[in-house]
């Protein structure tokens, strides 16, 4: 049965969390491998070749960020880190170290499954898989023609707005940190100036969202970055 769906490696020291993840993932046709410590997680990742890794940042034996870095030395398997609210710095550090996404505890099964789907989709088709057109709701981005549409009408965006939007589209559904966006739009020297991104994202929202103060597509991940709604 385990070779029916994708294989998820759960690296989590708390038995209750493992029990919850096992029950919910297996009921949604995911295969499950469990590891209680970081050490065990490393060997399972190498031995079982999972499709996705769910990693709790609060492991007793090794810092989750270090573990991410060590995994990234040889593996491109998507890593989704799990952390508590208020630990935004940890999340950013994990993302910078190579993690693909994160979940804030406590989370519901719907949220977890959405993250897993996005991660698996990106493995199957990295960088949007060369798919030239991205569509969600009434928003449409034509990457080949460099055009943006809302509700069928073309929307005028500036080159930097377009760069930001295109970056989010390539990572659709995944969190993109302020740092990554700054690097894409302004180059590596601007990575500390997060307010650049915020100002341009506000502009983009005013162009693309129906109600910019309640965005539907360009979602804010507090203290971390942005996420483009993908489904």
């Amino acid at each position: 049965m385990s070779d029916v769906g994708p294989l998820v490696l759960v690296i989590e020291d708390e038995p209750q969390m493992r029990r919850f993840l096992k029950a919910s993932l297996e009921s949604h046709d995911y295969g499950l491998v469990e590891a209680v410590t970081a050490r065990e997680g490393l060997s399972q990742a190498a031995g079982r070749n999972p499709d996705v890794i769910l990693l709790d940042l609060g492991l007793p034996d090794l810092d989750g960020i270090d573990l991410t870095r060590r995994l990234r030395e040889w593996s491109r398997t998507p890593i989704i880190v799990i952390s508590a609210r208020g630990r935004e710095q940890d999340k950013i550090a994990a993302l910078d170290a190579g993690a693909d996404d994160y979940l804030t505890k406590p989370f519901g099964i719907g949220e977890l499954l959405a993250r897993l789907r996005v991660a698996l989709r990106h493995v199957a088709a990295p960088d949007g898989g060369g798919e030239p057109v991205f569509e969600v709701g009434d928003l449409k981005v034509d990457l080949a023609a460099r055009l943006v549409f809302r509700g069928g009408a073309e929307i005028h965006v500036t080159p930097i707005e377009y760069k930001l939007l295109a970056t989010l589209v390539r990572h659709a559904g995944k969190v993109v940190t302020h740092r990554q966006l700054l690097k894409e739009a302004w180059g590596p020297n601007a990575v500390e100036r997060t307010h650049y991104v915020r100002v341009y994202m506000t502009q983009l929202r005013h162009k693309l969202e129906e109600d910019p103060s309640r965005p539907r597509y360009l979602l804010t991940e507090s203290g971390v970055g942005y996420r483009l709604k993908a489904e």
């Binding site: 997060t194 307010h195 915020r198 929202r205 103060s213 309640r214 965005p215």
Partner: peptide, 13 residues
């Protein structure tokens, strides 16, 4: 950090 109030209101909502 420098940020627009609109974004903060958006997340809160």
């Amino acid at each position: 950090d420098w940020q627009p109030l609109e974004e903060i209101v958006g997340v809160a909502l």
